[in-house]
Design a binder for these strands. Structure first.
Lengths: 200, 200
DNA sequence: TGTAAAACAGGACAGTTGACCTGTTTGGAG
DNA sequence: CTCCAAACAGGTCAACTGTCCTGTTTTACA
């Protein structure tokens, strides 16, 4: 796993910092995580830190590009593409997240959603990066959904709209789950959406 | 409206501070809003401020109890109760929020959702207060929905589950809207959920 | 009117924050 | 080996944060 560098290991240190920052940003948020905390927790000097990430914004950008995007990829994109059908893939993803929440005990929320809420109105560069992740997230869901191009774009054949609804349900469900520190809001949201999809 | 106090007006000053704080918390977030900013913006002395709100947490608690809850009440509860049917009420609420977003230009997100994401893992007292607002929000939607108690609680008759799905759709939709600074994700999410509800 | 509490003024305070700066060491190219 | 840039060490620094403290004015009430 994370190999310790006795000599210089710029990529290793850089990745270790991003890992730690991703964890801290997800649990405590961007603003509530000081680079002093990160430096102290890892025993990294200020010189090394500012060499890899001259500003906190640079660190945030790297975390979003290289960890937040990857976490969506690992949690959503990959399982969805491997699933035999769209509905079974979505079901597996929701269930696995819910199980993880229950096993973990604490609900920290969606890494992307947390940062999107906190930073979208603070920095446009970070916001654009996160918006692109949301767009890809929706697009991959939509491409697995049945397309009925002949129908009304606002009707039941609108795969893009349905993909947006799925992501919204997840994001909103996990927000309520965070407020209640229980997986139940997320579980009930998906349970209800799934039954609506099955009935249609 | 807000009457200016030439003499002492404790309630007026207190309300003015909470108003300003609610606005700032909604737009910039709790952590990114300093009490120094609030004091400077209003010309309030430190003595007056700490008299009404000895700590920042006390201010946050007051904002949640007296403004965030009220904003959900005004935007959701009241219109829903006045609407001729559940579906028309929900439609009116979503449309009015979307219209306001388009008119405003900037998307700041849901006041409750923003604070829930930022503070749920930082302070349990604040979290409990917000969880209660979510619970009431869901309950009022559920009570307007058709109940079919004889059916499977996980089936189409589960009004509580459907209410949770509606709040999740709104919360998640507005989170994506904030990331894109466009009302479109929220609009498409509701459009799609509404068509699913109509078809069921 | 007298008096005590509430409401407010203004500033001090210690602790943190993010950024930066000057040196030293490491590693790769020639 | 030479040399220079990258990688890192360790500390400084000004700005800012939330809280608290001492004093003054206003208000409620007996």
């Amino acid at each position: 796993m994370g190999r310790r560098a006795q000599r210089n290991d710029p990529d290793g240190l850089r990745n270790a910092i991003i890992d730690q920052a991703f964890e801290a940003f997800t649990v405590h948020g961007f603003g509530s995580t000081s680079i002093g905390d990160l430096k102290a927790a890892m025993g990294v000097s200020g010189g090394a830190f500012s060499h890899h990430f001259p500003t906190k914004k640079a660190l945030g950008l790297a975390v979003i590009r290289e960890r937040v995007a990857a976490s969506i990829e690992a949690t959503w994109i990959d399982p969805l593409r491997r699933a035999p059908s769209a509905i079974s893939g979505l079901d597996a993803v929701f269930l696995s997240v819910i199980d993880e929440l229950d096993a973990n005990g604490k609900v920290s929320g969606c890494p992307l959603g947390n940062l999107a809420v906190e930073l979208s109105r603070q920095d446009d560069d970070l916001r654009l990066e996160m918006d692109a992740i949301y767009a890809r997230w929706r697009a991959v869901i939509a491409e697995r959904l049945p397309h009925r191009a002949s129908e009304d774009p606002a009707g039941p054949g609108d795969a893009d709209g349905l993909a947006t609804l799925v992501v919204a349900t997840f994001t909103g469900g996990i927000t309520m789950a965070k407020a209640s520190q229980t997986s139940e809001p997320l579980r009930r949201s998906w349970q209800r959406l799934r039954s609506l999809l099955a009935a249609s």
